[in-house]
C-alpha cells in the first residue's frame, strides 16, 4: 500500500450513517445492515493523489477514539442524523475535542444524513429514484416526519467550530459550502460532499509538500538489502 497523500476522517455518533455514506460513495451501494467491521479504511485516487478516508470501527465509538484517529487529518466530516437533534449536539460535546490533533488548517464539513426519511427529503429522494430500483414501493409512500435539525443549525455549528479553532471566516470556505444534507440511501448529495472535499484537499497537499519535505521512512515498503558476506562494520 502506498502511503496516502492526505487523510480525511469521519466522525459522529453511532447510527448516523457514516459507514453508509462512505460505502455509497466508494462502492455505489447501500447495504441492508451496516457494520464498520472490515471497512474502516478507504483509499481514493483523486487526480494523481491518494486520499485515505477513515471511518471509526464499530465499537470504537464507545468512547474509544484516541488522539491518533484525527492525527494530521486534512479534513473532518462531522456527521449527524437530521432526524435526531442529539446527534448534532454530540458533535460539539463529544467529538470536537478529538479534532485537536488534526492538521492546523484542517477543513470541516458538517453533514446531516438520512434526509430521505424527512418530508423535505421526499423530493430529494425522487431525483434519485431511477438510481435505486431496489427501493420498496412502501418507502415512497410512507409518512415522513419533519426534520429535527435544520440546515441553519449546522451552519451555526460550523461557525462555532471556527471560533473553537480560532479560525477567521475569511480564511476558510464559507459555511454554506461546507454544510451538506445527504442521504446515503438514495445517494443524494453524497458525491458532492466527498468530491468537494477532495478538490479542497488537493491544494493543501501541494502546499504541504512545498513547505515540509518529510524525512519519514516507509517501513512497509523498504526491502532489506541483500546480505553481503562482509557484513556491515558496526
Amino acid at each position: 500500500m502506498r502511503k496516502p497523500d492526505s487523510k480525511i476522517v469521519l466522525l459522529g455518533d453511532m447510527n448516523v450513517g457514516k459507514t453508509s455514506l462512505l460505502q455509497r460513495y466508494m462502492e455505489r451501494r447501500f447495504p441492508d445492515t451496516v457494520s464498520t467491521v472490515g471497512g474502516a479504511f478507504y483509499l481514493k485516487q483523486w487526480r494523481s493523489y491518494n486520499i485515505s478516508i477513515w471511518d471509526t470501527a464499530g465499537r470504537e465509538q464507545f468512547h474509544g477514539l484516541g488522539s491518533m484517529y484525527c492525527r494530521g487529518a486534512a479534513a473532518i466530516i462531522l456527521t449527524y442524523d437530521v432526524n435526531h437533534r442529539q446527534s448534532l449536539v454530540e458533535l460539539e460535546d463529544r467529538f470536537l475535542g478529538l479534532t485537536d490533533t488534526a492538521s492546523k488548517d484542517c477543513l470541516f464539513a458538517i453533514v446531516g444524513n438520512k434526509v430521505d426519511l424527512t418530508e423535505e427529503g421526499a423530493l430529494a429522494g425522487q431525483e434519485k429514484e431511477e438510481c435505486s430500483p431496489n427501493m420498496d414501493a412502501g418507502d415512497r409512500v410512507s409518512p415522513r416526519a419533519p426534520k429535527q435539525v435544520q440546515l441553519e443549525d449546522a451552519v451555526a455549528l460550523y461557525k462555532k467550530i471556527l471560533k473553537y479553532k480560532m479560525l477567521d471566516e475569511q480564511d476558510v470556505p464559507a459555511a454554506e459550502q461546507m454544510c451538506f444534507e445527504t442521504s446515503a440511501k438514495t445517494g443524494y448529495n453524497v458525491d458532492l460532499l466527498f468530491e468537494t472535499l477532495f478538490d479542497l484537499v488537493v491544494p493543501m497537499i501541494l502546499q504541504q509538500r512545498a513547505e515540509r519535505p518529510s524525512h519519514t521512512v516507509d517501513i512497509s515498503s523498504h526491502k532489506p538489502p541483500k546480505r553481503t558476506r562482509s557484513g556491515c562494520c558496526a
Binding site: V37, A40, G66
Partner: peptide, 13 residues
Amino acid sequence: ARLSAIYGGTYML
C-alpha cells in the same frame, strides 16, 4: 488498538 477495533474489539477509555 485500532486493529483490534476494526476486527470487532470494543474500546472504552
